[in-house]
Design a protein around this nucleic acid. Structure first.
Lengths: 342, 342
DNA sequence: CTGAAAGCGCTTACAG
DNA sequence: CTGAAAGCGCTTACAG
């Protein structure tokens, strides 16, 4: 039933309940125009027929949409997995469904994914851009569909939800300075990414305020992944004087660095201090647990969903930048500098 | 444009290109019936109008679907995040879009999510069931939509994709026995879950084959999450003789256990041996890196997507159980038993 | 509350 | 290739 033969439609329910199609439609949408008795009659008929509402058909007719597209650069990064869970949670509460797309940090795939998404007529799009995204490309792909950019800014006039990157990195750096470090690296990420350059700026701000001059060798660029970071750990020690601590672009990179340090016999939290950025759950169970800038990815996801839904009602797509707060969470991966260099 | 005023439709493209609506429709679907010249003409008009294909409308008319629902119990678990990424990757390749829903291990939410999903008429559903799912409930919610169950079996006649749980847990246990352990715990998970009971069976199989009798205190149940596992670590040491090693339900639980051990001054990989199950990326960077049963979650995701798409073509929903292979990956979290108890 | 009608944007024969 | 027509499953006035 429901599969073999024709699909059960509104007409079938009308026939079964002895009501008109219009009345059934009213019941389905919870209209107050129908009496309780009629409503009960119709709902009983719906149950008997095994009717399931066809929301796509309704959306087509009413020129509405009940889905929001979520396009993520890297779902394997727990930061984005948490973010996605937050988005989905809030969308579901509001009766929307999440259309998921992953780009794997590829601009070409991002283009294909966005094009595919808009053919399903989403009410809006939440985009965590792939590295190197251009505003023009994104604009071409999404047309006039409301878009919210998350995490990295791209040129264009879209509203954006970001974290307080500069403040966070400054807090991280100040924490290391307070512990006594003077040779502090900024590790990981690519400078083209806005989130990375903002975090770098916060780091520099704190360094300069303390009268410290970062050396070029203390800036190591990597793809924003654990694996790349693990491979690049050695670069920190290529020149003297080597740093005694690192502010990392994000937690994934920080965990990779910790791993890279271990394999070189350098104990994070004992011989070398590490601070991350994001607040992914994995940082709590790493050994040593990771000091980080907590950015509450799940809350960001909920906020992103709220924001995109808000623009729908009002039609207001003001290109505001919302900044989600961050705070320092101190765990064991930070230590004072060793008495002598290693 | 495309937003203000009417949406651009197929009729507009027809007018713009001077072709008929039928011809434009043929071009859109790549029919070989149109000449190259006509095709070029139409495509140029599509570009000029900024037309975007309305796939929902097409699906409604043609009684087809271009989306697959993916319902996940816990996206914050990297195992499922990887799985989801694999599903999405394959669906995208085949021109399908992923409808995401998260249940957070709640049967009530799972019901609501499934009901919401089927209103969007997905071609099929991939379900990683919440703990305690009943076949009847799931069946009521999905009606006749093709369903593939992942990871945990539920009663009912749906095809299922699982891992070789019993073999995996047996390999893990045999590895510990070979290292010299005799007091081996099975840690984490709830016995109601089929994947857990299968892994427990593999553990028992290996223990008995080696002439070892597991004590009741060596079986500690927890929710399948890192946090719960960390809190329950102490239970392993509540009675003498305490175990010297643990086979864990999954990697999340294993990482939680490692953390719980550390906080009690027991060093995993030195004082106590730990084996996980899943092969999540985080296990590689934990300290110590986690010995585990590698189940390749991303490949499982790709396989799940392939399978559900295959049933669509043929209409064949044979309730097969596909078993994805597993293998032991040895890392530093395993050690021989300490010479004397701790 | 009902009934008849139009229409959302598309596909699909069918006769030319 | 074109043109006219019907229809996917729904919503939405509108007159009763």
């Amino acid at each position: 039933m429901g599969r073999q033969g024709r699909r059960v439609t509104l007409d079938d329910v009308a026939a079964e309940s002895g009501m008109s199609r219009a009345t059934v439609s009213l019941v389905l949408r919870g209209s107050p125009l129908v009496s309780d008795q009629t409503r009960a009659l119709v709902q009983e008929a719906i149950r008997r027929c095994g009717y399931v509402y066809n929301r796509s058909a309704a959306n087509l007719r009413a020129q509405t949409s009940s889905c929001v597209a979520l396009v993520i650069n890297d779902l394997a990064n727990p930061f984005f997995a948490e973010f996605a869970a937050g988005v989905d949670e809030t969308l579901a509460e509001r009766g929307f469904v999440t259309l998921l797309g992953c780009t794997g940090e590829s601009v070409a795939r991002q283009r294909a994914v966005l094009s595919s998404m808009i053919e399903h007529a989403p009410a809006g799009i939440i985009l965590s851009p792939a590295e190197g995204s251009l505003g023009k490309d994104v604009g071409d792909a999404v047309g006039g569909v409301p878009l919210l950019v998350f995490n990295r800014e791209i040129d264009g006039t879209w509203p954006c939800l970001g974290m307080d990157n500069q403040l966070g990195a400054r807090l991280a750096t100040e924490h290391l300075i307070a512990l006594g470090h003077r040779r502090i690296a900024f590790f990981g990420g690519h400078r083209e990414s806005s989130s990375c350059s903002q975090r770098l700026a916060g780091y520099l701000e704190a360094m300069h305020a303390a009268g410290l001059e970062p050396r070029p060798a203390w800036r190591v660029e990597t793809a924003p992944t654990r694996l790349e970071a693990a491979r690049s750990a050695a670069a920190l020690f290529a020149r003297d004087p080597a740093p005694t601590a690192a502010v990392c672009y994000n937690d994934a990179v920080a965990l990779g660095l910790q791993w890279g340090l271990m394999t070189r016999g350098i104990r994070p939290g004992v011989d070398f201090a590490v601070v991350g950025f994001d607040g992914i759950p994995e940082g709590e169970v790493s050994v040593p647990p990771l000091t980080t800038i907590w950015a509450d990815p799940r809350a960001c996801g909920r906020m992103a969903a709220e924001r995109i839904l808000a623009t729908l009602g009002t039609g207001d797509a003001s290109p505001d930048r919302t900044i989600s707060p961050v705070r320092l969470v101190v765990r064991e991966s930070c230590c004072p500098p060793p008495a002598k260099g290693h």
